[in-house]
Every structure is written in C-alpha cells, then in structure tokens.
C-alpha cells in the first residue's frame, strides 16, 4: 500500500465514518430513545402508563389476597428466599387479611433480593394461583429497608406493619398451641376410643377364644 496509499485509505475511511455520523446527526427521525417520565412527574392515574410495555413484562408482584391459601410454595421455590409469609390457618386473628381459609398477617417480598425469576408464580398451586407479576417496575428508594413490599396492602412495608405482625405473632402462636392441644385431645380421644374398641374387641375375642381355631 505504501505511505501515500495508507494516508489515502485512512482519510477515506474516516470520511466514510463521518458520513455515517452526519447521516444520523441531520436526521431527527433516527432518534430512538424516549424521555422517561419519572414517577413524580406523572399524574396520579398514570402510574402504569409507560409506553411499549409488553403483556409478558415481569414487574413487581401483586397478590390476590382472598385466593391465598398460605401454602408456602412460592417461598419454598424462591431461589433467593425473598418471600416472607406469616399468618395462620388455625383461626381468626384480629386485623389479619382474609385469605382462602387462611389468615395472613404478613406477606412481603424484599425487592433488594428479588430477581424477578417468576418461579413463585409458576409454583403457585392451581387451586389458588394468587401471586402474579404486575407491570409496575419503578420501585426505587433511598434506603434498602423500604424496598420491602407488603403484598397484602400493595404498599411498602413500614415499621407500623412490623409492629402489627409481631403482635399478631403471639396470637398465632396461641392459636397453634390451641390447635396442638385440640389435636392432642382429639388424638387422646381417638386413642381412648381405639383402646376402648380394642378392649371391646379383646373382650369379644376373649369371650369367643376358640373361633379362629375352628377354622383349622
């Protein structure tokens, strides 16, 4: 190529490149980015009005509380363990959210951990299908603590909520104790009944000791 050929080629390719950039510079139609509308600049109702969000978009979860049966499937499959469920299926708790035969005092997701893998929604059993991924994605905050979302109220999880759940915890434990006691009672009753039955059977058997022998 040689010295002059080199200079010629380089200048030529530089001009070719400059042609490309000039083409974009003079043509405003080529601008592909859009101005993001920050939440504080949006109106009250426009929370989800973000253009071109596909139906499949995996945003922040929402929960159909009345469908939830508190089966812990979602929390169990979660690869990063970001779901906390508290509540009871043993009975009423004051102030708790009513699920499907469950009383939920807490259902939170820590979005500082969540990886939006959708496995919780996949794992949700067919009888309930209560947890879904919504379209909202703007969940920024200035501290990590406020990234915990309360799915029961669809708001950020606050310290007041924490107080409620700790208070409810004792009630839940009480209910669990009661259930255990009842179960134990029932067990004892069943055992007693079984023992009585057995005793009766034994009595019966004793009364007819030769019956099996008759078969031989």
């Amino acid at each position: 190529m040689g010295y002059f050929g080199d200079i010629y080629d380089v200048s030529k390719s530089i001009l070719t490149g400059m042609g490309v950039t000039l083409k974009y510079f003079v043509n405003p139609k080529t601008i592909t980015t859009v101005q993001y509308k920050r939440p504080e600049r949006r109106g009250e109702g426009e929370l989800h009005e973000v253009p071109h969000l596909p139906d499949m978009h995996k945003g922040i979860h929402y929960l159909e509380t009345e469908e939830c049966i508190m089966c812990w499937q979602c929390a169990n499959i979660c690869p990063v363990d970001c779901i906390v469920i508290e509540g009871t299926r043993d009975g009423e708790v004051e102030g708790a959210y009513q699920g499907n035969r469950a009383n939920l005092t807490r259902f939170t997701i820590d979005y500082s951990l969540c990886i939006y893998c959708n496995l919780c929604c996949e794992a949700c059993p067919e009888t309930s299908t209560c947890i879904h991924m919504g379209k909202e994605f703007d969940f920024t905050s200035y501290d990590q603590g406020s990234l915990v979302k309360n799915l029961l109220t669809d708001e950020k999880f606050t310290k007041e909520d924490l107080r409620f759940t700790t208070n409810a915890q004792s009630k839940i434990e009480e209910l669990a104790e009661e259930k255990k006691r009842k179960a134990a009672e029932a067990q004892a009753a069943r055992k007693a009944a079984a023992a009585a039955k057995k005793a009766a059977a034994a009595k019966k058997a004793a009364s007819t000791p030769d019956t099996p022998a008759k078969k031989d």
């Binding site: 950039t21 974009y24 405003p28 080529t30 601008i31 592909t32 980015t33």
Partner: peptide, 13 residues
C-alpha cells in the same frame, strides 16, 4: 447534543 443526535439519542432533557 451533537453526540446524542449522532448516536440516536435525545441527549440531556
């Protein structure tokens, strides 16, 4: 702005 328009962007807005 020049860089933005050359790169199909809006630039500072």
């Amino acid at each position: 702005k020049i860089s933005a328009f050359m790169q199909s962007r809006l630039g500072p807005m």
